[in-house]
Design a protein around this nucleic acid. Sequence first.
DNA 1: TGTTGATATACTCCAAGTGAGCATATCTTA
DNA 2: TAAGATATGCTCACTTGGAGTATATCAACA
Lengths: 316, 316
Amino acid sequence: MNTTTPQSEHDVAADLIAVLVAVTDGDPRVLTIQDERALPSGPFQIAHRSLQSGLRAWVERQTRLPLGYVEQLYTFADSDRAGVTAQHVISISYLGLTREQPAAGEYVASWRGWYDYFPWEDHRVGVPPQIDELKRGLAAWATNTEDRAERRNRRQRAAMLFGFDDHEWNEELILQRYELLYEAGLIAEAKRGASSALAKASAPVATGRSMILDHRRILATGIARLRAKIKYHPVVFELMPDTFTLLQLQRCVEALAGRPVHKPNFRRLIEQQELVEETGELSQETGGRPAKLFRFRGAVFAARAIAGTKLPVSGA
Amino acid sequence: MNTTTPQSEHDVAADLIAVLVAVTDGDPRVLTIQDERALPSGPFQIAHRSLQSGLRAWVERQTRLPLGYVEQLYTFADSDRAGVTAQHVISISYLGLTREQPAAGEYVASWRGWYDYFPWEDHRVGVPPQIDELKRGLAAWATNTEDRAERRNRRQRAAMLFGFDDHEWNEELILQRYELLYEAGLIAEAKRGASSALAKASAPVATGRSMILDHRRILATGIARLRAKIKYHPVVFELMPDTFTLLQLQRCVEALAGRPVHKPNFRRLIEQQELVEETGELSQETGGRPAKLFRFRGAVFAARAIAGTKLPVSGA
DNA sequence: TGTTGATATACTCCAAGTGAGCATATCTTA
DNA sequence: TAAGATATGCTCACTTGGAGTATATCAACA
């Protein structure tokens, strides 16, 4: 078997699909289309020199956004989760970071807070109330099997992922949590294959806004990657304006991680690594003592990008 | 733009390509074909339920190997690095772990030590001699530009990646090192586009065995992923026999990481995490005091796989 | 004009993690 | 029986990183 394949039999269509993230007013947002139920996507064309440049090209054309950091996420081709029409489609997903703007593109796109799709993931002001309902749903699912070992396994997984029984909350496991909820039948997308009667039965309140096909899973993949990446790579600055206060920067990290950050430690690490420099100006919009304005040191970034940096998001 | 695309214009062929790794006698090996100059690959077929199951299917059929851990690496479609025939081909690469066996498959495949392709990456017994030659080549490349800033930038990158001037060696940056060597024209694959005279000119001694197309880059991607993964995920055991001594386990980790490991600390972490249990038997093949034989606790693995584990590979 | 509240900024402490060295035990081989 | 080689266990010092506390500076308001 070699690499030159006949062009006839195995042809598939390749789609590019983007998780475009911005943070505005301390809230993480994602670009959506189709009544905010789909991620933007488009076909990969031969004309594109590479996958990444292909993605850059049509995102910037469609949204007129300056696309900063771009990273490949995952390539999907599972036919079970996709719709019937998507059977022969390979979806190559990307994560892109930018600053939110009106998105005056060729078609209607809009930004939406990503916690609308994952309300249980926002632990910035404590454990969100939705967790309670999910806990009940997962408990019911765990008991809904004859196998004793399987019951214990289900309870164990739920506890580890959702922080029950003194387990620690790990914000990076968002994809695993989504897949567990999916497996437990608590996610609207999981009921599509089932009868329409069942689909209408339980109204998902705590389980967030649904999306088409497996787009919510792709979104979860993107959030997970981003939550992991901000800890050792200075990608946060792609989401910040040119100048910012340290608290704004902290709020941005908290928005992405979905958990509070210890302020003194955060400042310590930021300043230790010399990633930012003072502009000399002060922000008057703090409400209290004016904060120094900082600017990202792009020069250091280029070198440091290889080695990596550190941000104090506890846990994990 | 939506997800249902016309099947006519944008069709491409999708190839699956595998980095299959095994460790035998303390040496990391990779499965190759075509005179040990290519990674095994095959077309993705509609019949396959998913990409991963598609890969599993044909690997097990071709090689008759029990494929343990499988993980998607990256999807390539760059036309510049691939050959002319591969223009419309998307390559979805995977990392797979197994135990080396005769590989009695349908076609000729053979295992080969991966340091044959990356001789500068083996730092288990100190800095390998090839580094010297690479250092000279990179220095020459750095001076080969008019731009002062670019010269300094090149020197800086080379130093950071290859550990010159008191920089620390980071074994995870194998892909970045390969790409730097490629950019510097020190890799045989980089000369294919150039004239054949030039291609024959410099015989690459320190730059390792070459591969077809961009297979060596894919191999580097796989090694990088594996070197990162063993630190926080118990995937090493996929490469071990059923029972093993702690030193054997350590040698396996060292083989993958390409650097020595502190023995007492290694044992401490392994035992702290209760990943292994004693079989009660002793190994007589140590040459010295017989070592206890251990077995991987698969039960813990299932639960721990979510949370992750730790292995002491210093640096990074 | 002073007080309150909110934020910015700085310093200190402590516990866990981790790199590194040393001592002892047990077996094989000469 | 001595030497060599490996296994196994212990100790120590240093760094990292989480967490608490204290002070500075400004706006709003009485």
